[in-house]
Design a protein around this nucleic acid. Structure first.
Lengths: 213, 213
DNA sequence: GTCTATAATTAGATAGAC
DNA sequence: GTCTATCTAATTATAGAC
C-alpha cells in the first residue's frame, strides 16, 4: 500500500478533497462502526455533498478500505522507522522500545483498535480483508519478536499468540474506551502524562523476568 | 436489576419466547453492533415475526438494554458467588482468584466486552446508560480490590485506572477477537486448554511483585 | 470535479385480524 | 400473545446539469 510511485488512487493526500473525506470517514467509521456511520454523515463532516463519496471511492465499502488502509500505513511507518534506527541493539531492549512506541501509537490513533475490534469479532469479508492486507504481517512481526525472547528465557514462557493479545489488549483498551474512562475515573487517558504511565505499566508487565511470582 | 420478586418485565426467563428473542438479540448486537443488527435479523434468528419484538420490548433501544442487562446480571452472579465463598482468605489470593474467574467469564461471554467496546468508545446515551447502570459498580469494585494491594506493596505501584484497563484489555481481547485469532494463528482461544493458558498469563503478569525488572 | 435531484432498497415501528 | 400487511423515514447509489 502507498508505495510512492503508484497511480493516483494510492496517493490520496495528493487531492485535498479526498484527504478530507478520508479523515472524516476514519473518524466516523471508528466511532460508530461501518453500519453506524452513514455516507451522508461522513459527507457532512467532510463538508462535501454525499454523491461525491461515490465519485471518488465508488462505494461505501471501498471508502472504508481506503480509510482503514491509511491508519495501517501510518502504523507501519511509525513502527518501521523505530526498528530501522535500532540496528545492533540487543533484542530485549528493541522489544521494549517497540512495545513502548506501540502503546504511544495506540493512544495517538485509537481508531486503529476501534476498527479492528469492530470488524474482527465476527467472520466476514472485512475480517478476511483486514487480516490478509494489514494484520497478518503485523502479527508475524510480533511473533518473531517475542519468540527469541521466550527461547532465551528473557521473558515468561507464554505462547506467542497469548503474548500478542495480552499486548494489544493491554496497550489499547484504555485509549479505545477513553470516553468511558473519563466518565468512570475522571482521568483523561490521552493526557501525555497518563500515556507515559500506561507505557511504563505495559512494558513492566509484559517484560517481567520469568522468575517473578 | 432482576431482584427476584419484581414484576414480570424484570424476569425475562419466565417467558420462553422473550428469552429466545433476548438470546438472539445479544448474539447479534454483540457481533454486528447496535446499528448493524436489524430487528428483522434478530427476529429471524429467534424464529418469530419482527413486530413481536416491538410487542415485547417496545423499541429496539429497550430490547438492547434488556439483552445487555442480562449479560451483566450473569457477570455479577458469577463474580459475586466467587467473592462470597472466600471470606477470611487474604486479599492477594482473593484478587488472583477473582481475576482468574474474570478471564474465564470473558472467554465464556465475549459478548460482554464486545458490547462495551462498541458503545463506550464514543459519547452517547448508550455509554451513559452502561456506565450508570452496570459498569460503575464493577469499576469501583475493581479499584477497591487493587488499591490495598498496591498500598501494601504486594503488586506494582500502578494507578488503579491503569490496572483496570490493563486487566480488562488483557483478559478479554483474545476472546473478543476469537475469529481473527483463529485466522491469524490457527489457535482457537475458546479451547478450554487455551483459556487456562490465558488465565495463567494474565494472573502472572498482573500480580508480578514490585521488585521484578 | 462538483453539485442537485432522485431512484431503489431497507430500516424500525404500527394497525388490526385472529 | 402472535401474526400479516403496511407506513414512514433513512439508507446507498445513480443520472445528469454545470
Amino acid at each position: 500500500m502507498t508505495t510512492a510511485s503508484e497511480h493516483r488512487a494510492a496517493r490520496p493526500h495528493a487531492d485535498p478533497t479526498r484527504a478530507r473525506i478520508l479523515e472524516a470517514a476514519l473518524d466516523l467509521f471508528s466511532e460508530r462502526s461501518f453500519e453506524g456511520a452513514s455516507t451522508r454523515l461522513i459527507a457532512e463532516r467532510a463538508g462535501v455533498p454525499q454523491p461525491l463519496l461515490s465519485y471518488h471511492f465508488g462505494s461505501k465499502d471501498e471508502l472504508w478500505k481506503a480509510a482503514v488502509g491509511q491508519v495501517f500505513d501510518e502504523l507501519n511507518r511509525a513502527m518501521g522507522g523505530r526498528v530501522e534506527g535500532l540496528r545492533g541493539v540487543d533484542d530485549l531492549t528493541v522489544a521494549k522500545l517497540v512495545v513502548a512506541d506501540f502503546v504511544r501509537f495506540s493512544a495517538a490513533h485509537p481508531e486503529l483498535h476501534r476498527i479492528i475490534t469492530q470488524e474482527c469479532k465476527a467472520e466476514g469479508e472485512h475480517l478476511q480483508w483486514l487480516v490478509g492486507h494489514h494484520i497478518r504481517p503485523l502479527y508475524d512481526g510480533a511473533v518473531s519478536m517475542f519468540e527469541p525472547l521466550v527461547a532465551a528465557g528473557l521473558i515468561r514462557d507464554v505462547p506467542a499468540v497469548h503474548l500478542y493479545y495480552l499486548l494489544t489488549g493491554a496497550a489499547a483498551t484504555m485509549f479505545v474506551l477513553a470516553p468511558e474512562c473519563r466518565l468512570l475515573s475522571g482521568v483523561d487517558p490521552l493526557d501525555p502524562a497518563e500515556v507515559e504511565r500506561h507505557v511504563d505499566a505495559v512494558v513492566a508487565m509484559l517484560f517481567a523476568a520469568p522468575g517473578a511470582p
